[in-house]
Design a binder for these strands. Structure first.
Lengths: 233, 233
DNA sequence: ACCTGAACACCGTTCAAGT
DNA sequence: ACCTGAACACCGTTCAAGT
């Protein structure tokens, strides 16, 4: 509680990169992807835009930092149960990201952006490391480490990006069930000549459970990865 | 060449929704994601913004239409070789989308947006139908049609979204090889204590071939899907 | 070193007015 | 029915000036 080494704190609400990023995350969570503006941020932090630009280079860097903070938290939670198999751990890591996207609807888009724009940034290595270690533990031959990890990460990114409760849904005050119902209805009304499969599958789409579906997909990829073992004598 | 049924054409360059969407695609291809503005569009079409808004509700609808046109073209190309297995056809469809994204770097982001924001729009059903029919042909039990198709589509979306030659790369005038080299270098310089796997895999990342890697991932999912058959007696 | 806030060069979108 | 173009309410970003 006592201040250490006699260093005086200036003002309690002094700006810092951390505080700015934190405010950005809150703003994104509350008002959605388009809600993060320097106007809103300056108001919330009671400063001018110049103050923010002193700590952060531009909006892109701010979004990258916000994404990194949230991803780091999501990956840190994973409880290391000693009894868990690598497969179970991979499922847990994937679900951690799934839940993070569920909580922060803006995260899905940003994950895709960070991965493709700056794979050497902090976000991509974090996720690759977390999945990759378990791929190693799976006994995948070394030559396939990158391939197997990539496939898992690609599936996770693709799948999670669609499970976003997006602003459109929030605006209309629909819950996920109503939303899926509307989509299913639209699918059922497609031209039977052009869209027989999509129509046939509309019911399954309406009733599917997001998390369950997501995990089944993970398991499909894991099954495929298990097949890589036999390739190498 | 002769005008049909005596209908007079007004001016050759009369506006239409089609012409606007076409111009939007060209603008996106030439100047990238951020290059599509109503300013640039009005200049290219020699009109005012009001003229565009007469044919198109807003920018979102314009982007959706541009995405739909490009996706439709990509899926239409698939040559129906009668000897091809469903697996081969799925690979061909996937590669068609891969190539489309390679040609139109803005497409990856837009695919993700269209899928999550309006899965009842035209883009998502087109892709689901194209993949889904082949999943049916694979002999997947009916109860797993939606699950199997979703897994494939999720993988495809996730994987393609990362193979974009993005504007950052274009600006720096790097080719894909140099870009991957830089990423690999950055990975190799990560903290050995925190990122042993990512460091170990940097070399594989540098040398990997995008298309080959993409297809292996497809095959991993297909292997997993093959396992679904046995679930049902 | 850190912050202020006016100013700049853009956006997407609207709308009275024209033909 | 279709188009014009000025105007509006925003953006992200800069920068001289302050402390």
């Amino acid at each position: 509680m006592a201040s250490r080494a006699g260093k005086e704190k200036r003002r309690t609400d002094a700006l810092s990169r951390e505080r700015i990023v934190e405010a950005a995350v809150e703003l994104l969570d509350t008002t959605g992807e388009g809600g993060l503006t320097f106007r809103a941020l300056t108001e919330r932090l009671a400063t001018g835009p110049g103050a923010i630009y002193w700590h952060v280079a531009n909006k892109g860097e701010l979004l990258a930092a916000a994404t990194d903070v949230v991803v780091a938290a999501a990956l840190a939670v994973e409880p290391v149960e000693s009894a868990a198999s690598p497969q179970d751990e991979i499922r847990a890591v994937a679900l951690g990201l799934f839940d993070a996207i569920d909580e922060h609807s803006w995260l899905a888009t940003q994950l895709a952006v960070q991965f493709s724009r700056s794979p050497s940034g902090s976000v991509a290595p974090r996720i690759i490391e977390s999945i990759g270690r378990r791929v190693q533990a799976l006994g995948v031959p070394e030559g396939s480490w990158f391939t197997a990890t990539s496939a898992l990460v690609h599936y996770i990114l693709g799948a999670t990006s669609q499970y976003v409760t997006n602003s459109h849904v929030l605006e209309a005050e629909l819950d996920r069930g109503e939303f899926l119902g509307d989509v299913a209805k639209a699918w059922e009304e497609l031209d039977p000549a052009d869209y027989p499969f999509t129509r046939a599958v509309a019911g399954q789409m309406r009733e599917h459970d997001d998390r369950e579906q997501f995990l089944i997909g993970i398991d499909l990829v894991l099954t495929g990865i298990a097949g890589l073992h036999r390739t190498k004598g």
